[in-house]
Design a protein around this nucleic acid. Structure first.
Ligand SMILES: [Mn+2]
Ligand SMILES: [Mn+2]
Ligand SMILES: [Zn+2]
Ligand SMILES: [Zn+2]
Lengths: 142, 142
DNA sequence: ACCTAGATGAGAACGATTCTAAAGTACGAC
DNA sequence: GTCGTACTTTAGAATCGTTCTCATCTAGGT
């Protein structure tokens, strides 16, 4: 009885037109275990959509973000990553290999806003924890 | 008796060669109230160094970061910003105008690391709070 | 079946950053 | 003070991720 993660239905519910490319991109993200870049998506779908443009991937992930089906994560260097996990959560970033891991805060942050930002209206926040992932730690020389 | 923020001395102490460009860039950041981009620095020093290359600014801020004299802040879209405030602190980012404000956490975060990231070695972290700054709130239509 | 707002595809354009290679300079050694 | 050399600067090309343009195509309502 649990909500089926059907790409077509999700698109329809979001009020987006269902195209083969959109369906494939959303399905890819639903199946993908991790935080895919546009290029990850693009290359993975080359076989099935040899003529799909990289613009289409950009357009699609942007719209999926706008309707809240995915979340864009821009950490450190390089390309944005797209996260099918849209719950509020945060990320560990490996400074060696760029790997990303989800994590959750045990309690929400409490911040002291400086006078010059008095009245700042908080929408949301994201914590980026940098460090060395277990895999890179193992391979370390030192 | 307080530590003089002399650009030349800071460079020497950091073991960096003192060049006019470096001195000017570091001095600019010391005087600048905020979070300057490479282009901010570059354009502001055009008068004094008409032939300075943008590469020099990139090279210099990278080295200043490496020796810990400045901190590179990469929030959201657009160009990196460079922060002369190297104490651990975090940022409010205006999603309308891009303005950046410092803030401090009242207490350090406590995170629950998922099993697949077991053993992740934390180096540091940065909290990016998105929202609407007081100025943009005032100008708002709604 | 038809119409049209919206989507796609190819490639150009863009902004930020890095790279390259040649010419210039800081600074330690003498 | 002069010299040598390792480091720095410069201009421009190159790269990377992303956005834009516009002609063609199509999903989905009528
Ligand atoms: Mn995530
Ligand atoms: Mn700051
Ligand atoms: Zn790693
Ligand atoms: Zn603002």
């Amino acid at each position: 009885m649990q909500a089926q993660k059907d790409a077509v239905q999700l698109l329809k519910n979001a009020g987006l037109r269902v195209t083969p490319q959109r369906e494939a991109i959303l399905q890819f993200l639903l199946d993908y275990d991790g935080h895919a870049t546009v290029d990850d998506i693009y290359t993975s779908l080359q076989d099935r959509f040899p003529s799909m443009s990289v613009s289409t991937v950009y357009n699609t992930v942007k719209q999926l973000s706008q309707v809240g089906l995915v979340k864009e994560i821009g950490v450190g260097e390089g390309a944005s990553r797209f996260d099918i996990n849209v719950e509020p959560h945060h990320h560990l970033v490996c400074t060696r290999c760029g790997a990303l891991f989800d994590f959750y805060l045990e309690e929400p942050i409490r911040l002291s806003v400086p006078p010059e930002a008095e009245g700042f209206e908080v929408e949301d926040y994201h914590v980026e924890v940098r460090g060395v992932c277990p895999r890179c730690k193992k391979q370390q020389v030192s």
